[in-house]
């Protein structure tokens, strides 16, 4: 009897191993896609592989990575946050106007304010049961209007850039500090997801919200936290952008919305929720940045650049998504 159980257990383990290998392949796809794309661009323009050039690429990817990192948590919950870019713009305005008064404390203050803004959206979403798409769509217009009002519809220059200098320097004259900030953000969020119940809960809600609810998970709280995290990283992304433009502007980050969502999806996080990871967003942001910057750098004509971008982004997603997790593609 015991033997039979052991054999059955062994067989089960072997059976589990086979999908695991496929899982590794699927997991490695985003990285592979990134490397292939980099190689292809390097063939067109070998200078791209110079250390300085690569680090600059990484630097360019940093704000996008930070912006997409928090939004990834919302996507893992099965929702979507369309407000991140507008919130980052608002953050830039707030930061630039608060620096004179708060100096170094302005950045944490702005991040906190954005976290609150995100949490408010989360609260509206869970309390009134409005789809996150609609809430954050409304949030998008609202925050950008607030940014316009707060800035008087103008660029807000930063009289003194020292409080944000840390976010835009080169450590040792080489490594961009923003890259480290982005990596730290991703690692911190990944650790939060790994070592606290939050990660388990977020995934459970994304995979099967009814089951999560009946297991007694604090659904509302988890979602509000997810939106707050998304808001906080949007605020941090706004700070990174301020650091590199030395000013805040009400539309500064608006154009980063679709790239941020693309980074999440290209990385292989399922837009339907549950399946995905933060490191995927890191890789996704790399791919999107390569496409955004690399194509024009490699000398592709602007008109064809757009066409190529369209083709490649669909191709990248086609390569990276894990179809075994999607029964129905929407």
């Amino acid at each position: 009897m015991a033997d039979a159980a052991r054999v059955a257990g062994l067989r089960g383990r072997l059976a589990a191993r086979v999908p695991e290998r496929r899982h590794v392949v699927v997991t490695a796809m985003p990285v592979t896609a990134f490397l292939v794309l980099l190689a292809a661009l390097a063939v067109a323009s070998p200078a791209l592989l110079e250390t300085g050039s690569l680090l600059t690429l990484a630097d360019s990817a940093a704000p996008l990575t930070v912006l997409a990192a928090g939004a990834t948590v919302v996507v893992l919950c099965g929702g979507i946050d369309l407000s991140v870019a507008a919130l980052a713009s608002l953050a830039s305005v707030l930061l630039a106007s608060w620096v004179p008064a708060l100096s170094g404390a302005a950045v944490p203050a702005v991040v906190a304010a954005c976290a609150v803004a995100g949490a408010v959206q989360g609260l509206v979403h869970v309390a009134f049961r409005i789809p996150s798409f609609v809430v954050t769509l409304g949030g998008m217009t609202l925050w950008s209007a607030v940014a316009l009002l707060a800035s008087g519809a103008a660029t807000v220059p930063m009289p003194d850039s020292t409080p944000t200098d840390w976010a835009f320097t080169r450590l040792g004259g080489l490594v961009p500090s923003a890259v480290l900030v982005a990596l730290a953000t991703v690692v911190a969020l990944a650790a939060l997801m790994r070592f606290t119940p939050l990660g388990r809960w977020v995934r459970a809600i994304g995979h099967a919200e009814p089951a999560a609810r009946l297991a007694g998970l604090p659904i509302a709280r988890v979602k509000v936290i997810a939106f707050a995290l998304s808001g906080a990283t949007a605020g941090l992304a706004g700070a990174l952008l301020v650091a590199r433009t030395f000013s805040g502007a009400p539309t500064l980050a608006d154009s980063l919305l679709l790239p941020a969502v693309a980074a999440i999806v290209v990385g292989g996080t399922a837009i339907t929720g549950g399946h995905g990871a933060l490191w995927r967003t890191l890789v996704g942001a790399g791919i999107v940045t390569l496409l955004r910057v690399g194509l024009s750098y490699a000398g592709v004509d602007a008109a064809y650049e757009s066409i190529l971008y369209g083709v490649l982004i669909v191709g990248a997603v086609a390569l990276t998504i894990d179809r075994s997790k999607l029964s129905i593609v929407k």
């Binding site: 110079e50 300085g52 050039s53 704000p63």
Partner: peptide, 23 residues
């Protein structure tokens, strides 16, 4: 060399940094 950034501030900065990083 023609560069266009679709009216995206972030993309403009990325492109500038990239051309300034090489050659």
């Amino acid at each position: 060399q023609r560069l266009t950034y679709d009216g995206e501030s972030a993309k403009q900065q990325e492109q500038i940094r990239q051309v300034l990083a090489t050659g």
